[in-house]
Design a protein around this nucleic acid. Structure first.
Lengths: 406, 406
DNA sequence: TGACAGTAATTTCGATTTCGAAATAATACC
DNA sequence: GGTATTATTTCGAAATCGAAATTACTGTCA
């Protein structure tokens, strides 16, 4: 007789949640399929499902056309009215929020900006405002809140431990604060990791057990999924590839090189973030304006923004395009390193460069293939989830942890 | 992040096996401690322990001096006579074998060499011979065999899939072959990963949940432990950092550089393995003999071996020492990258360079600290397990999977 | 068209496992 | 000797299993 390690308590505690997760992931499963997936006796699966149906969290749906013999399965889907979850994701310039229903469909979204000068208190206030906005004029209960936070967090105490680019952002008791304010469970996660969760549950990572999501915004970080689970590291600081010391594509080097080495340059001090993040690209563009008088970027009023560079590249501006391509080379190197180390099924790029289109990702692929010799096993793709990516992942974080109280 | 149900077949196969693992790890646990660790009711823990004692796999030991009030706990330890396990680890030049008893104490070890020209069949024969030698003149039953194999393996089918440096080493049904021959369960693992297992269970990784073990032999690879489990990757090919494209320390560059860049050099094509593996170091030493007439290495007869270089470095030869230091720099860069990506508790170096002493590891630490700016969170250490490292890990692999049949 | 075989999902219903709380055991400290 | 404290065992209750019904279909053949 096979013995289970999970005690009754632990099993009961998580079985409801796990069952709901599977149903959400597949969008409709029968009792038998659930029993097989969770390795439960059919009778046990039945007991749980029946209870969740009775409580209004699952709906039994009519079986759609089958052609197989045998009693048709009754499909179970999450009841959209089971409750709502809120997700917030913020980074240096943007704060995104979303509400999703119980079947994880987004109901509403909002977007505000944060200023680099904003204090921790100000950011907290803006988060609370965004959450209120999401719950306004909708009587259905909110069951949980997820927040994607830049920097390191402690998912046990729900404290935002540190973020290097916001003053005073140290040991902010974000979880406690929001729980107190809204009276529902709050879950924190690092924001690149919540992007990875979004990929895992809705995006290019659906159904995969091993993939890496690389988020390129003002910083660069990786969310790593191993065996279907997020990698956190000893101090929840895993994925900081922005600090990787990397080769520098010619075009992105701070000073023109003395001598070309097949288009790359090595500097001891070059961190990936200072080379191929959005802010680094903008800075390089700014520096290069004089040397590239023909570029359409010269006509931009005020300080350059990444959107200017991307728009110019899209319109065929050679200088802007060369910068995008150079960033693609740097990230191709990253993809190669990650592929060799993790051997993931996919490497997913997220952020404005990914939303931008083919020029970037094609260069990434080419570079990774070149460096890999035999080729790169991992499929390299752009995220297709768009900019609410992190917020949706954060909402799903709360949604996926939630379980009915027994 | 999904808290996954450890259902019966998933993470922890059976309570019996898990219980034995815990007892081995702690070297003596009471029923209560086991119940707490495994989150079982005390009564349940009691049932399992009693049965294992009855069957002769656990021994109840006298309680050693305590000072606490309350009924003293009866400590449980594995019965050394519960059975023996054999571990084999082979790489390009060496084949190591060991037998351990049921309490994972090594009983005997052996060492043979393989020649690069050896065919797959010849290697298989040598493995079988080594195993026989281990079981000879000892009537106690062998319960399992673990093998650390270079290259990729499939732990499900127990096939050695591929190894680039051995001719004909493709889809070798090593597991089936040995099971048939010896009639016991056989487990395969990649050999760097079995080194990591040895560290996890006996070495510098004891008690840690997140660490990385870097093995430097004729190739370079990493065994990664995340949440107490080995990382395998989608095709069981994770950890191939030997293929990483890396900066090249001056001293190890194939051609003297045109211009120094703070002691490093970047080449698009430089793979870590071609720069800082044992064979690369030997090759560089050989190449550098002419330019360094004063080195004691010039006096070595025949082709250089890595031991010559290490011995010379230990004796104060400046050229040899500079090569060791340069390898340390390269691996310091590796440690930095790994630290940022995984945020492990430790980074453990294994192989002759680690056995060699401080010169190497100190340079690694310094370089990692420099590159990390704020410093490197992970503790960087040498393995202290010596060269039977992988064999012991392989034996433990079998030992830890084993469970009494019910 | 309607019995009937075939098939697969679900339920039913004891059997088994595991739990949880209370009882018991074995010590230290007073 | 009594009390406090912790480990282990006891024992009824709850969870889960597994195999055997039962149900609800499809397809086939008279």
């Amino acid at each position: 007789m096979p013995r289970r390690i999970k005690s009754k308590h632990q099993l009961v505690a998580t079985l409801d949640a796990e069952l709901l997760r599977r149903v959400r992931a597949h969008g409709g499963l029968s009792r038998m399929q659930l029993a097989r997936e969770l390795k439960l006796a059919p009778s046990t699966a039945g007991i749980y499902v029946d209870r969740l149906v009775r409580e209004g969290f699952l709906l039994e749906t009519e079986t759609t056309g089958r052609a197989t013999a045998g009693r048709p399965a009754t499909s179970l889907v999450p009841n959209p009215d089971g409750g709502r979850f809120i997700g917030v994701d913020f980074g240096v310039p943007n704060l995104m929020a979303t509400v999703v229903d119980f079947s994880q469909r987004p109901l509403r979204q909002s977007h505000t900006t944060l200023r680099p000068a904003d204090s921790a208190a100000r950011i907290l206030a803006k988060i609370e405002l965004a959450i209120e906005e999401m719950t306004a004029r909708d009587p259905r209960p909110v069951l949980g809140i997820g927040v994607g936070v830049p920097g390191t967090i402690d998912p046990v105490t729900n404290v935002a431990v540190h973020y290097e680019f916001t003053r005073g952002w140290n040991n902010v008791p974000l979880g406690a604060r929001l729980t107190e304010r809204f009276g529902v469970p709050v879950f924190l996660e690092n924001n690149i990791r919540s992007m990875a969760l979004a990929e895992l549950w809705f995006g290019a990572g659906r159904g995969l057990r091993n993939f890496v999501c690389i988020g390129i915004r003002s910083g660069i970080a990786a969310g790593v999924v191993v065996n279907g689970q997020l990698l956190h590291g000893a101090q929840h600081r895993a994925g900081e590839i922005g600090h990787w010391v990397c080769p520098v594509p010619e075009e992105l080097a701070a000073h023109p090189p003395a001598r070309r080495q097949r288009g790359w340059r090595w500097q001891t001090a070059a961190k990936l973030e200072q080379v191929a993040s959005l802010s680094a690209i903008v800075a390089t563009a700014q520096r290069g304006l004089k040397r590239n008088p023909k570029t359409s970027l010269a006509g931009v009023k005020g300080p350059l923004a990444i959107d200017d560079v991307l728009a110019a590249a899209r319109d065929g501006d050679a200088f802007a395009a060369s910068l995008v391509r150079a960033a693609g080379r740097a990230h191709g190197w990253v993809a190669h390193q990650i592929n060799e180390l993790f051997n993931p099924e996919k490497i997913i790029f997220a952020g404005p460069l990914a939303d931008f289109g083919d020029l970037f990702i094609t260069t990434v692929r080419e570079t990774a293939r070149e460096l890999g010799g035999a080729g790169c096993d991992a499929v390299i793709v752009n995220s297709i989830l768009g900019q609410y990516n992190g917020a949706v992942g954060a909402a799903a974080l709360a949604l996926h942890q939630w379980k009915p109280r027994r």
